[in-house]
Design a protein around this nucleic acid. Structure first.
Lengths: 260, 260
DNA sequence: CGGGGGTTATGTACGTTGTACGGTGGTGTC
DNA sequence: GACACCACCGTACAACGTACATAACCCCCG
């Protein structure tokens, strides 16, 4: 067993806490062990089962009771391994981020950054329900930190100043995560749909001609390549930062005038 | 009363539904009426009170009971005006988006788009807790649609094809909303903080030198100008699309090779 | 081989949440 | 003056997260 018995009890006093990313504290991506056996309830098994449950039935289906039932265990048994439901979700997110391929690839830093970000994007795409939760109150676990480390390392290696690298990283990160947040946009602009999709009647079509023009191009579901558009735009801008010092700004200066 | 008695009863059968964005169905930004009076429980008053509650106490503080208590009313009284808690939140989001200034400004389309997006950003910044919820399962109400209409109109007016405009709009939208999703990042990489901030011990500092280099520049709280960096980068890229046809891509072609 | 201690699973139970249901009172209309 | 119609209320329920005390388990030491 690679699993040490020193697994934390996760009680409020939290007596001990493992440090290594793939140690018993955090969850390894490798599901080789204890995938089949019933009896040993371990942190990795809980987190993996929870991730599968969310992938299949959606985030609201993740209740401690349902998860316990899936594991053929009492609900309270889970609390010996995770402190909280929130901690469980944090662990699930880190497990998801473990799927990101951080290995170096040939090419310049822009290419490497693009590959890394695309892999990140892929990992989020593989778990859409969880990716949508990966938003408010983000906590960065070890896998997330390692991704961050690699991205920032590439930016610094390219010659960006720490401040510029921070801006650039944050823009990339924001865009990538934000992309998955909005996976479930529901345009209810079509008056015929108002009752069918429920809830909202939006606006009559004649008030939003431009939106209606684009309607066939924004068919709710994301097309492939839509992510890459913004990604490449950002990357190009970041690259330009290296020579020009800051992203180009439009002419006027009253752009962010109103209060805040 | 400017309030028509035809306000929907919001029961499951949903007998009638008003159409106009500032009608009794949706909530006007103007808080002139019924701001002080106790007795008349109206949809606008409910939504405005809820928004204030979330602004002050955070999203988890928004319970139907707490909201009802704030309005000095029985919890169930709310359900005569909103169908659901989810509908309530949708209304709150649309109320927030009503604060976006869509009025035209002088300047070219890039400038106008920048001003619009900044105003959008301001509106979200004014209500951070709600902005964070503005993520999973986005429903676009009338105010959101009008913002969308204006942004897309600017893009189409600039000469972008519908497909390009859709990509560009989506990238801008994604970035802007995503920016506020990540308002609460908690880097717990500092081992000394591990118990204080709770939950996670991340990674020893020597494993993440690049991240540690940027630590002072990413002090958890967002700095002013960080949003504009990515925004200007995206805008510049969109503008470049007009002449070049598509955003520049790095040289290699194995970028999005692995499955999905 | 037998006991003991710590860890792990359990059952019960509580507080909180969203919300369905039926009654009730005040108000506008004929 | 009577009726109908709402908005509002009180009660109630199911589902949730999880605290607490207890019981089963296993490994280690004697």
């Amino acid at each position: 067993m690679t699993e040490q018995p020193s697994a934390s009890r996760a009680r409020p006093d939290r007596p001990d806490r493992p440090d290594r990313p793939d140690g018993p504290g955090w969850v390894s991506v490798d599901p080789s062990e204890d995938e089949q056996r019933r009896p040993p309830l371990t942190r990795p098994r809980i987190v993996r089962t929870a991730l599968r449950l969310v992938d299949e039935k959606g985030l609201p289906a993740l209740t401690m009771r349902a998860l316990a039932q899936q594991l053929k265990v009492s609900p309270m048994a889970l609390y010996n391994h995770v402190h909280d439901k929130e901690e469980l979700i944090d662990l699930m997110i880190d497990l998801m981020l473990g799927e990101v391929d951080r290995s170096p690839v040939p090419g310049d830093w822009v290419t490497q950054l693009r590959v890394l970000t695309c892999s990140y994007h892929q990992a989020l795409s593989a778990h859409p329900a969880l990716a949508r939760r990966y938003s408010s109150q983000v906590r960065i676990g070890p896998h997330g930190l390692l991704i961050m480390e690699r991205a920032i390392g590439l930016l610094l290696g390219a010659g960006l100043s720490p401040a510029a690298a921070a801006d650039a990283f944050f823009a990339l990160f924001t865009y990538t995560v934000g992309f998955h947040q909005l996976g479930q946009i529901r345009r209810v602009s079509d008056p015929k749909r108002q009752d069918e999709t429920g809830y909202y009647v939006a606006l009559p079509a004649e008030q939003i001609p431009a939106v209606m023009t684009l309607a066939p191009h924004m068919s709710g579901v994301r097309q492939d390549g839509q992510f890459e558009y913004g990604l490449d735009t950002l990357l190009a801008g970041i690259k330009a930062t290296l020579t020009q010092g800051s992203p180009p700004r439009p002419s006027t200066d009253k752009t962010e005038a109103h209060g805040g």
